[in-house]
């Protein structure tokens, strides 16, 4: 089984956690050993996957750093981690926490043969970029020492297209598509392993003859409602096509779902994302 590390990111509220959960479920369906990871504190992904049988972990950079020190220094680590100097250092050192979170993901994925698929809900665009940019940025700020070596190893994994994919999620609205295009540009500039562009909550394309039928709806309020839906669908097709042309990518359109519940949505989307997982 090929092993793969997935990062999922995008503008806030576009359904990143749901798409990440769908990727995890799709991988589990083909019997991969799957770990889903949230950064920071337990939130959407943990709630969506509760009861799915998939392992979900929360990685916090500050904890990961303390853990790292404990592994390397044993019981000598405690006085360090408890010392106010350490707190100040971790607070001031650029991106150390972000770096450590990525490092811990790398350990889980690359050091042990425990998981086939690791899916990371990397958070909203700005924050995720902070994490993803850190390995190379930190490598420059820390020019020697362990942190430097750690950063170099992380950066290599994030660039390794054979093992890693950074996916971007958007919705078909203009602003979300713009932000996704910008993010993909940033990822490419950082030379990271850019994965799929998911466009979530798409209305299915209108078949031929819809406009002729619309003209026959006499009830004005209903006609107005359906015409607006038709316009929205047309705008959505144009918006996605524009981003595809600009970035030379082919977007993966995910359907708008009627289930209000996150777990049900992720289960429904798992089929649509199977080829990527």
């Amino acid at each position: 089984m090929t092993r793969r590390l997935h990062f999922v990111t995008g503008k806030g509220g576009v359904g990143k956690s749901t798409v990440a959960a769908a990727l995890a479920l799709a991988a589990a369906h083909r019997n991969a050993r799957v770990l889903a990871i949230e950064l920071g504190e337990p939130a959407g992904l943990t709630r969506i996957l509760a009861g799915s049988g998939i392992d979900v972990a929360t990685f916090d950079g500050a904890d990961a750093l303390a853990e790292y020190l404990t592994i390397h220094l044993g019981r000598l680590a405690r006085p360090i981690v408890d010392h106010p100097l350490y707190t100040a250092f971790v607070g001031a050192a650029p991106g150390l926490r972000e770096l450590m979170a990525i490092g811990k993901i790398r350990d889980e994925f690359a050091l042990h043969d425990r998981w086939d698929t690791v899916v990371v809900d990397a958070g909203a665009t700005g924050h995720a970029l902070e994490h993803l940019r850190m390995p190379s940025a930190t490598g420059e700020a820390f020019r020697s020492g362990r942190v430097h070596r750690e950063a170099a190893a992380n950066a290599a994994l994030l660039r390794d297209r054979a093992r890693c994919s950074v996916h971007v999620v958007a919705t078909p609205e203009q602003m979300a598509l713009r932000e996704a295009a910008q993010l993909i540009g940033d990822l490419r500039q950082l030379d990271l392993a850019t994965g799929a562009l998911f466009v979530n909550r798409c209305v299915p394309p209108a078949p031929a003859g819809v406009d002729a039928l619309l003209a026959r709806i006499a009830e004005p309020t209903l006609g107005e409602l359906l015409r607006r839906a038709r316009d929205r669908e047309a705008r959505q097709q144009r918006g996605i096509a524009a981003v595809e042309a600009e970035l030379f990518v082919s977007a993966l359109r995910l359907p708008q779902l009627r289930e209000p519940d996150g777990a049900a949505q992720a289960a429904a989307l798992a089929r649509c994302v199977a080829e990527v997982a």
């Binding site: 360090i80 010392h83 100097l85 250092f89 001031a92 820390f142 020019r143 020492g145 362990r146």
Partner: peptide, 24 residues
Amino acid sequence: TARFVLRRLERAAGTRTLRDISTF
């Protein structure tokens, strides 16, 4: 203790980094 902590941090972060932090 502080000396010990600083030495460990220096080994992890590199001398130059610690100097930058110190200046800061």
